[in-house]
Design a binder for these strands. Structure first.
Lengths: 235, 235
DNA sequence: GTCGGATATTAGGATACCCTAAGCCAGCAG
DNA sequence: CTGCTGGCTTAGGGTATCCTAATATCCGAC
């Protein structure tokens, strides 16, 4: 009989913690408290305190001096916030004229305030979108999320054809620059060159037949699906 | 040199207090702390504490044992919240299919979370509406609000032609019932009868040629403009 | 003109969250 | 295998908001 069925509603802080823990632990297993602190711009002791509360609430598992991981319950709560955020970003962009680089902050505040009902209405009005403006997959209402096999542009082999799928930053300046370069989700590209020692990657943009040189920092943010759309791609 | 130009951003609680103080003091001069407590569903001492902070912040004037009034600054902050709330209600109703009786709670939460920019985008998308779904006037972006001369249906003279302008409640059950009766803003009506001793008012609905009997409690919520629309009305 | 009850305020405490400063632990350097 | 350093946690405060219980004030009834 569902032990903690009626949890108290989560506070804004808790929702934010869960979201960053989700992101930090999505690759490796544990999220370090100092990384959580850095992401939320808090002092590490504040995180230790919250970590205790979260693990008492059954939302995370804490291994002292190692880090934290989400429980199933915590993961659900995190995915719910991610769905909210991404639906909001998509709605604000498509319906209210926000730019993809300015929409993050607004969604960040709204995601704590709106009802699930509103989110579903927005999603419905948009035809249940599967990706947000940055190309990130939107969890379904049932909180299932697509786990795509994406490679960072910084690691793609020279000669490979790719489709740009995700731009993994919310920084407005970087987003604006990348958009100017035509590097938005859906862009078809071929890696034509990479300089050694973490040097820049050069890509050919299909459609515009233009070349772009992308430094390593930005190339790491560009998540691509191999075999982009045409050319020799077959697989 | 604008003394307190850069006030700290107001908290949600403060925003809520200012809004109810605005409503409570809009008629008479002072809002009583017990009335504020009742409206916000708080214990009176909590209000006393907040009242002290608000008056230190220059948002209200407090006369001990009498009540509070908004300062010019507090009034501006209250009107800003009222604009936000009413724009949100209008947007949610017109763009996302909310009913006029269900929209209040959603707007109540969102009004604390969204940016002014979003409010103006929503207002723009709606063509800068002047009234919300309940007929209440929406303050302009410059925070000017229409002060209409409205009479309560419960006090209108028998025989008078009226236009229903505002429905002064947010209670979903009452709103739903009134909508079923065709009593929504814009309805044209004529008072045909009133029973004594705070008895019900009977109105004739133009257009539907139907009669409605409205008890005193509800009739007090229906704010009307005299000389409704047609018939002998000329003024 | 004083008493009593309603209303308001002060006193004292709880919670959730944040911080800085001080102490603890794990694992690598030697 | 010992000691140091950096990351983590505990200790101790601070703010904002709420509460209950106790006290103060106002005002109409008599």
């Amino acid at each position: 009989m569902h032990a903690l069925a009626h949890e108290a509603p989560l506070t804004r802080s808790v929702e934010d913690y869960l979201k960053v823990i989700y992101h930090l632990s999505s690759q490796g297993g544990f999220a370090a408290t100092s990384d959580i602190a850095a992401m939320l711009d808090l002092a590490p002791p504040s995180v230790s305190g919250m970590v205790k509360r979260l693990s008492e609430a059954g939302l995370i598992e804490h291994v002292p001096y190692r880090g934290v991981q989400l429980t199933a319950q915590g993961r659900r709560a995190a995915l719910r916030m991610i769905r909210r955020h991404r639906v909001l970003e998509t709605y604000l962009t498509q319906q209210l004229g926000y730019d993809w680089d300015g929409v993050h902050a607004e969604a960040e505040r709204m995601e704590h305030a709106v009802s699930d009902d509103l989110i579903e209405r927005m999603a419905g009005a948009l035809g249940d979108p599967r990706y947000d403006p940055h190309g990130e997959p939107i969890p379904t209402a049932a909180l299932e999320i697509e786990e795509a096999e994406l490679v960072r542009l910084s690691e793609a082999a020279v000669g490979q054809a790719l489709e740009l799928r995700e731009v993994a930053t919310q920084d407005p300046a970087r987003l604006r620059y990348l958009a100017e370069q035509g590097l938005t989700p859906g862009a078809q590209l071929v890696v034509t060159d990479r300089q050694p020692f973490n040097g820049p990657t050069t890509v050919q943009l299909r459609g515009s037949s233009a070349a772009r040189v992308v430094g390593q920092e930005l190339a790491r943010l560009l998540l691509c699906r191999p075999g982009g759309g045409d050319g020799d791609a077959r697989a």
